Amino acid sequence: MIRLYTDNLNISYGERLIVKNLRVDIPDKKITTIIGPNGCGKSTLLKAITRIIPPQSGTIVLDGKNIAKEKTKVLARKIAILPQTPESVNGLTAGELVSYGRFPYQKGFGRLTSKDIEVIDWALDVTGTSEFKHRSVDALSGGQRQRVWIAMALAQETEIIFLDEPTTYLDLAHQLEVLELLQRLNKEENRTIIMVLHDLNQAARFADYIVALKDGEVVKAGHCEEVINQHVLKKVFHIDAEIGRDPRTNKPMCITYNLIKGEQKNEKDFDSISTVAHAVH
């Protein structure tokens, strides 16, 4: 089932066209990951779908309606986003930060109701951050902070959650902790999860559906086996990848890779190739 999709989407920064005539379908109640080299439009796409930035042209449709015409609070009850580098006000406790997720439901002076408090406590509990409720967010570790931000997104009670590189700056254990939490939310809460990931093997392990972008266009979208393969990775990242199987999940994984030599068209292409080295570790 497709509740959310883009149609002929064009997004520009100044005179530079970043996303071009893009059609993307987001499967409902699934985990979708977006992959691609730096500068290909991944974060830009998320910002447009969540109405942080306006597209130059085209439409973004949710439940049969153009989101550009939706009221902000109405949309905020359907879509939550965790940006790439979220910043909180100094001195906020975890509980106070999570309470911001209740904004779409507040009226008048915005005082928290008993329902709001119940949802906040649930969001803290499900993300394993209840013990940090009265602790300053600044005093938490990177993984703990990331889980508190996810709790804030959950407190919005949306069925769709966007996350832009949720594992950035986290060590391997905390990366796995965050991704397993998102997978659990998808399986147990039926949340639709859309996230940008740089690590191809994490994308393959946790995604039901993968969208591979390059230069603002979809190279391939589909199940893991359709995207994490030698042909697609060559087109997207300009690498010669050796693909095997994850012994624990049986999903495809990139075992090793080489840069493809002699096909760089210009210095800009070479820079894009260089940036992808971290994506397959």
Rank of each mutant, 00 (worst) to 15 (best):
R3Q: 10
D7I: 01
N10E: 11
N10C: 14
S12V: 01
L22V: 01
L22D: 03
R23H: 14
D25N: 12
I34L: 10
I35E: 05
G41H: 11
S43K: 02
L45G: 00
I49A: 01
I52Q: 15
Q56T: 15
T59A: 13
D63T: 00
G64F: 12
G64Q: 13
I67T: 14
I67N: 09
K69T: 14
E70F: 07
L75D: 07
A76T: 04
V89C: 07
A94W: 08
G95Q: 06
E96V: 02
E96Q: 14
R102M: 10
F103W: 02
L112M: 10
T113W: 12
D116W: 08
V119C: 04
W122P: 07
A123L: 09
L124S: 01
T127M: 04
E131D: 00
K133A: 07
S136F: 11
V137W: 09
D138N: 15
D138G: 09
L140R: 10
G143N: 05
G143R: 05
Q144I: 03
Q146H: 12
Q146D: 13
V148D: 09
W149I: 01
I150R: 02
A151P: 00
M152F: 04
M152W: 03
P166M: 11
T167V: 01
L172A: 10
L179R: 01
L179S: 06
N186W: 06
N186Y: 00
E188V: 04
E189D: 06
I193C: 03
I194M: 12
V196W: 09
L197S: 06
H198F: 04
N201S: 08
A204H: 02
R205W: 01
A221C: 09
C224K: 05
E226K: 00
E226S: 02
V227N: 04
H231R: 03
A241E: 13
R245A: 08
T249D: 02
C254F: 05
N258E: 15
L259H: 02
L259R: 09
L259S: 10
K265E: 15
K268C: 01
K268A: 10
D269Q: 14
S274G: 15
A277V: 12
H281A: 15
